[in-house]
Computed example of a mutant assay.
Amino acid sequence: MNLNNLPAGLEEYYRYAEAVASLDLAIKLEPNEAYLWDWRGIVLGRFGRAEEAISSYDRALELQPDDAGILDNQAYALLTLGRHEEAMANWDKVLEIDPNHSNAYYNKACYFALQNQVELALENLQRAIELEPERCRELAKNDSDFDGIRGDVRFQELLAGG
């Protein structure tokens, strides 16, 4: 099938369907590979199927319970469903496993910014930037999660490197 001739949006759907089908086949062949379940969760999450994504992450975590990356991915899916406390518990566990996991700090900063908990947002963003300055500053520049604190001088200083 030539995906270039599909209407807008349909091409993306077919790629998504292919990705899920490929992962399901791979999982059928290797059901105990946590990374396959993790990738399945990522793909499902990107297409708005967060409940199914969480189930995939649950299976991945049964296989690798202390995988910070899987926990971080699952936390994001939990957050999209409004399960904030569970997401925060995941991010806290991520940071217990890997205190240098910048993505967990960044995601916590986003969450706190959206909750207008400015001090906690800045504290977590600062830690994320300390760990990965270029990437986290670049992400935060355009991340709408920070719109509520964008005018804060401390936020501006973090982005400027000061």
Rank of each mutant, 00 (worst) to 15 (best):
K108P: 12
L78F: 14
E86F: 13
N100P: 14
D92V: 07
D92A: 12
L114E: 15
L95V: 09
E123C: 11
Q74S: 04
C110H: 01
F112M: 08
D98S: 10
D92N: 15
N90G: 12
Q74E: 11
L63N: 00
F112P: 08
Y76I: 07
Q115H: 14
A89I: 08
L61Y: 01
L122Q: 15
K93G: 04
N107V: 09
Q126S: 00
L71C: 02
A77M: 14
P99S: 13
A113Y: 04
D67H: 02
H101C: 09
A87L: 13
R83L: 13
V94R: 04
Q74L: 08
N107D: 13
H84P: 04
L63H: 09
A87Y: 07
E86P: 13
D67V: 03
K93Y: 09
L79D: 03
V94D: 03
L71Q: 02
Y76N: 01
E119D: 14
Y106Q: 12
A113R: 04
A104G: 15
L95W: 09
N73A: 05
V118N: 04
I97E: 11
N124I: 03
K93E: 10
Q64N: 03
L125G: 02
L78G: 00
G82C: 07
R127T: 00
M88R: 07
V118S: 01
D72V: 01
L71F: 02
L63M: 03
L125M: 00
Q64A: 12
N90E: 09
N100Q: 15
L81F: 06
E96C: 05
Y105D: 08
F112A: 05
D67W: 04
Y111K: 11
N73Q: 02
L120N: 12
N124M: 08
N107P: 09
K93F: 08
I129H: 02
I70P: 00
L79Q: 09
